[in-house]
């Protein structure tokens, strides 16, 4: 019957597209990483690991994710709780808080560059307040830790919005009755948050964490804008090897490393924040 074929016809273009532009390149990038001149080899990985920047890049990327993601989660939970408590002006506040959602990482990097560069707004403000006499340098390879913090601030500023949106959407799904019931049984605001909000938000927390962590491993333009090449990160190395050094194999090996840690963390969050089928709302 014609009706039976219809869903497949509707799906076909997107499915073909996914095969060509997702499944095929995903396999291809793996093959590229493990081959050199048409032969199977670990050479690309050897070359990647033996380069002095690899360890730093890996450490910087993981460290950045480790700083940024938990802070974003806490901040978003805080903001989401506040928004759900608001009566008036909720839409306006939510719009303002989600503005960074539409801002690219490159633009965010440039914006924070304007603030943190030597002649930038932060130094000017501190000078105006009489805290410093002359501009201090923050964004220098001599202060790798300060660089890291600067990137972390820009990342938190830019990408907390996505966590917030997911959490607000998830919080909206929790029926009010649960809170009222808990209140009747004598649970205070903190107890209600811990005993109702957090457990009920498991699926949203899971989505937010997976999405944000993967995006954190892909951090790229913010770092380039703020730190240039002074602060190696994995995605930046992919770009370097692919574009500047013209070594696609090594770039692919880097890509597999990013893919590997992304998948590892995804599985980790899927497992830690799993919701048993029977406990779903």
């Amino acid at each position: 019957m014609q009706v039976r074929a219809l869903p497949y016809l509707l799906l076909a273009p997107a499915a073909v597209f996914l095969v060509i532009f997702f499944l095929y390149p995903a396999v291809d990038v793996a093959i590229q990483a493990f081959t050199s001149d048409g032969e199977w080899t670990w050479a690309n990985f050897d070359q990647m690991v033996s380069h002095w920047k690899f360890n730093t890049a890996l450490r910087n990327t993981l460290l950045l994710a480790l700083i940024v993601v938990p802070l974003q989660l806490a901040l978003s939970l805080f903001m989401a709780t506040m928004v759900t408590k608001m009566k008036r002006g909720r839409d306006l506040i939510l719009y303002i808080w989600t503005i960074p959602l539409g801002i690219s990482d490159l633009a965010a990097g440039i914006i924070w560059l304007a603030i943190l560069e030597q002649n930038g707004f932060l130094n000017s403000a501190l000078y105006g307040l009489g805290v410093i006499d002359s501009p201090a340098t923050y964004l220098s390879y001599q202060n790798p830790f300060v660089l890291l913090i600067a990137v972390a601030i820009a990342e938190i500023w830019r990408s907390t919005a996505i966590v917030l949106v997911i959490l607000v959407a998830g919080m909206g799904l929790i029926p009010k009755e649960y809170y009222e019931a808990a209140e009747v049984f004598g649970a205070g605001p903190w107890k209600r948050f811990v005993k109702i909000t957090l457990p009920m938000m498991r699926p949203s927390l899971q989505t937010a964490l997976i999405l944000r962590t993967i995006l954190a491993f892909e951090v790229f333009a913010v770092v380039i804008a703020l730190a240039g090449v002074q602060m190696p990160i994995l995605m930046g190395e992919v770009y370097e090897w692919e574009f500047r050094l013209r070594e696609s194999g090594v770039a692919a090996a880097y890509a597999l490393v990013i893919l590997g840690i992304s998948i590892a963390f995804t599985i980790f969050f899927l497992w830690v924040l799993r919701t048993p089928k029977e406990a779903r709302v």
């Binding site: 869903p7 499915a15 996914l18 995903a26 291809d28 993967i214 491993f217 995605m235 992304s262």
Partner: peptide, 29 residues
């Protein structure tokens, strides 16, 4: 329809995948 879930899973999988990296093999293609 049969296959609906496979499709859904592939679509959802793309979210757990650092998509910009696909630019590497695609550049060659």
């Amino acid at each position: 329809f049969p296959g609906k879930n496979v499709f859904r899973v592939v679509v959802l999988m793309t979210r757990a995948f650092p998509l910009p990296l696909l630019a590497l093999p695609l550049a060659i293609m």
